[in-house]
Write a protein that binds this DNA or RNA. Structure first.
Length: 788
DNA sequence: CGGAACCAGTTTTTT
DNA sequence: ACTGGTTCCG
């Protein structure tokens, strides 16, 4: 690959490039966008609100760099977070320049650029250039071994936990030696130590994990000035998308590379930073001007996506956050519906109502513009909320698609098959070996594996070699020995095929067949008709076999298995070729960057959204991130958006009374219209909403709204103390004592077992144990029944 | 070795 | 309620 060759001496850029073609990419840009495109020299921070055309500006800027001959395509470093964003950017630049750009090897995700750099300089961190990239499965398995080896109870200190801790350090660009004293308590005081061992083990395996793709490159730059300088000179222009999502490692990576010329343009929106929980630092964007003195800050504030009411509701919610860089979105549009708000009895009714509303949208009844299903999205906070919609839509036959969810390459059978491929390429890949040595069942249990491991370890060889030694020493008997021999022979045979550069698709097919892996999913042969093709065990098994076929198909378009494996480890998204009209269901996180004419935002209930866990774990910071999520949700909508909440919801198997999300109350009331529930369960609350609709002129002064409002306020660890004191219904909270017998409209009679603020733990006689909000509970009339 | 019984954990997710 | 993982027994 040309970008791997040593950098040629820089030759002067040709003059003719400067006016090569008319700059059509300026067309349709507004003033700030144009400025962002033209300010090529020096640091630029583009603060681009939702729907303000940031990708347009970013791609035009690259087109401008290339078109004016200011930079060659391979001198531009442009990084994104997702493959999807990178693909889109490539396409759009090609469109702007009217040709595909051959030489933009450095436009890609942080990780794909990281791999490229790391392969080139692997030896500087003790790796070989052909290192493998571990998936999460491998990582966990490895960590588990280390935990057990360290004599730690894996039950109390699960590998998952260690993975999170280490990942956190890697996100902060901390190598094992640099873990600060403050973190030494992590993982039962053994975290840093295990981190060190983990890194050592990776080095031995000639492998690295995702975090390393960034961390190692940062280390290389920090410790090898000559290398850093070379790249500083080479990457003459740096562009960064979604800068608010960068973590410390990525930040250092960029700061090091931009350190020379400082031609760095970061695009982002602090209000859309929603990945703090996985290490993103909003601080990076907030302090850009300090890091790059003299930076030009350009604000894109004209929104081309949403109607004024939607924008207003979104802006009013986000304005409750502190420490924002501050943007005021505006639009030149004037028309549009308000944000609709509706409450439902429970999640099921919410799903039913949304289903009906979608059908109404399709038909264009009630004065709504007719919509195709592709124009409609349901955005939820947590994926478990999706089930209610899937259930409902299946029963009414409404086509839907779930975006996100488990990825193709993460499925067990795919990983298993790929472990076989890995072993065919390198028989010493211990993690792959461990994965499949007994898949399918070969009569090799724990005992056998321990023997293999022992043989390998005492001779300092791989598990594959260890197995050989074990067999030739005759220390393994019976069925297991025979089967193991068969596996080893298979590996040798397949390895020969790799060396012979046999067609990789054929090779993959051979490996899968000869491994007898699919046996696991097939019924035993029919004794009467042994030649008949065997059936899959069940529906699930059939799906897995189908996936294996798909895997083979996916190999087309790659030159060899190695190339395919590399692609898979970095590009895990499943590009869907689904062209049918379907409603999209996805999480708010997955919706970032997308837009839809009509959007449903269900489940706006305190505890669910904002998520209780986010608030418990990260306090005010967590709440603010949740609020940004609300902002992201609202700003996905172009014309029509409904926010809804349910009064009761099944949470981890028990019913809970829910209260309207505080974000509902934060929406500018003039931008919101309260709808009445159409459902049959006319509870007092719903009835109030109907009242609210009846007196719509009164809007928020209606009893229904007041009720919603007071419900929204009746909660709040993160609300200002004064406000809390004034809004909490003290009578309701203090009226109960532990042990008191109470009555709940839905659950009947029960006894209070604990009181936590306005939440009561109640053991109901019929409905079992529930957590319930005090407001929904009355003292039981029959006081003489109280059991003490 | 494989099935049943038991138990903990349960937001968001890319690469 | 549900899942995935582990343990316990035949």
């Amino acid at each position: 690959m040309s970008e791997f060759e040593d950098f040629p001496d820089r030759v002067p850029l040709s003059q003719q490039a400067l006016s090569a073609r008319p700059a059509t990419y300026f067309e349709g840009l507004n003033a700030p966008q144009k400025e962002a495109v033209e300010t090529l020299q020096g640091p630029v921070l583009m603060l681009a609100g939702a729907g303000t055309g940031k990708t347009k500006a970013l791609t035009a800027r690259i087109a401008h760099l290339l078109n004016t001959g200011t930079a060659r395509p391979n001198e531009v470093l442009a990084v994104t977070f997702t493959n999807k964003a990178a693909r889109e950017m490539k396409q759009r630049i090609a469109g702007l320049l009217g040709q595909t750009i051959e030489g933009m090897p450095w436009l890609g995700t942080f990780h794909s650029v990281g791999v490229k750099l790391l392969r080139r300089h692997a030896e500087l961190v003790g790796l070989k250039t052909n290192f493998t990239i571990l998936d999460t499965d491998d990582q966990l398995r490895l960590m588990k071994q280390l935990i057990v080896a360290a004599g730690i109870d894996e039950k109390r200190w699960p590998a998952r936990h260690l993975a999170n801790v280490i990942d956190g350090w890697k996100n902060r660009a901390l190598t094992p030696e640099k873990v600060p004293a403050a973190d030494h308590g992590a993982f039962n005081h053994r975290g840093a130590e295990l981190y060190g061992r983990y890194q050592d083990r990776l080095k031995t395996l000639n492998a690295c994990d995702f975090g390393d793709l960034l961390l190692h490159v940062v280390t290389i730059f920090q410790e090898n000035e000559d290398v850093l300088e070379k790249y500083q000179r080479w990457f003459r222009y740096i562009l960064v998308d979604e800068y608010q999502d960068t973590n410390v490692a990525q930040y250092l990576w960029l700061r090091l590379l931009a350190g020379g010329h400082k031609n760095i343009c970061c695009v982002g929106d602090d209000d859309q930073s929603i990945y703090g929980w996985r290490g993103a630092e909003v601080g990076n964007i907030l302090r850009f001007e300090k890091d790059f003195p003299g930076a030009k800050v350009i604000r894109l504030e004209q929104n081309y996506r949403s109607t004024p009411h939607i924008l207003r509701a979104a802006s009013s919610v986000i304005s409750a956050n502190t420490g924002r860089l501050g943007k005021t979105l505006f639009t030149e549009e004037t028309e549009g519906e308000k944000v609709h708000l509706i409450s439902h009895w429970d999640g099921e009714e919410e799903a039913r109502w949304i289903g009906e509303e979608i059908e109404a949208l399709q038909r264009g009844t009630r004065g709504m513009t007719p919509r195709g299903l592709n124009d409609i999205a349901i955005l939820v906070r947590a994926s478990h909320q999706m089930r209610a919609f899937e259930d409902r839509f299946l029963s009414i036959g409404l086509p839907y698609r779930v975006i996100g969810g488990p990825r193709f390459y993460e499925r067990m059978e795919i990983r298993d098959a790929m472990a076989y491929f890995r072993l065919a390429i390198s028989r010493d890949d211990d993690l792959a070996f461990e994965r499949i040595y007994n898949k399918p069942k070969r009569g090799l249990g724990d005992k056998a594996f321990q023997k293999i491991q022992m043989a390998a370890r005492s001779n300092g060889v791989s598990l594959y070699e260890g197995s050989r030694l074990l067999l030739s020493a005759g220390e393994l008997g019976g069925k297991g020995a025979k089967e193991l021999q068969k596996l080893l022979d298979g590996l040798d045979r397949w390895h020969m095929m790799v060396l012979d550069e046999r067609d990789h698709i054929e090779l993959a097919q051979v490996i899968i067949d000869e491994s007898e892996y699919p046996e696991m999913y097939l019924l035993p042969p029919d004794p009467d008709a042994p030649d008949r093709p065997r059936k899959a065990r069940d529906v699930e098994a059939a799906g897995r076999l189908e996936n294996l076929k798909e895997l083979i198909e996916a190999l087309e378009g790659f030159e060899n298995l190695q190339g395919f494996l590399e692609h898979v480890s970095l590009v895990m998204d499943n590009a869907s070729d689904d062209v049918d009209e379907k409603v999209s269901i996805m999480t708010l996180h997955a919706a970032k960057g997308l837009e839809f004419p009509a959007v449903f935002l269900p489940g706006w209930e305190d505890g669910l959204f904002p998520s209780q866990r986010a608030m418990d774990e990260s306090g005010l910071k967590g709440l603010e991130e949740e609020r940004r999520l609300a902002y992201v949700g609202l700003t996905r909508a172009e014309e029509y958006v409904v926010v809804s909440f349910a009064q009761n919801r099944l949470v981890f198997g028990s019913w809970q009374s829910q209260m309207a999300s505080r974000f509902i109350d934060e929406m500018d009331r003039d931008a919101v219209e309260v709808l009445g529930a159409a459902g049959s369960h006319a509870t007092p609350e719903v009835q109030s909403d109907l009242d609210a609709r009846a007196s719509r002129a009164d809007g928020y002064n209606s009893p229904g709204w007041k009720r919603l409002q007071s419900k929204a306020n009746h909660r709040g660890m993160s609300q200002p103390r004064e406000a809390r004191n004034t809004v909490i219904d003290l009578e309701a909270v203090s009226a109960f004592t532990t042990g008191e017998r109470v009555f709940h409209d839905k659950f009947g009679y029960g006894t209070i077992t604990a009181i936590e603020g306005d939440k009561l733990d109640i053991s109901f006689e019929k409905a079992g144990f529930k957590k319930v909000v005090a407001k929904f509970v009355k003292a039981a009339e029959a006081a003489d029944d109280v059991p003490f």
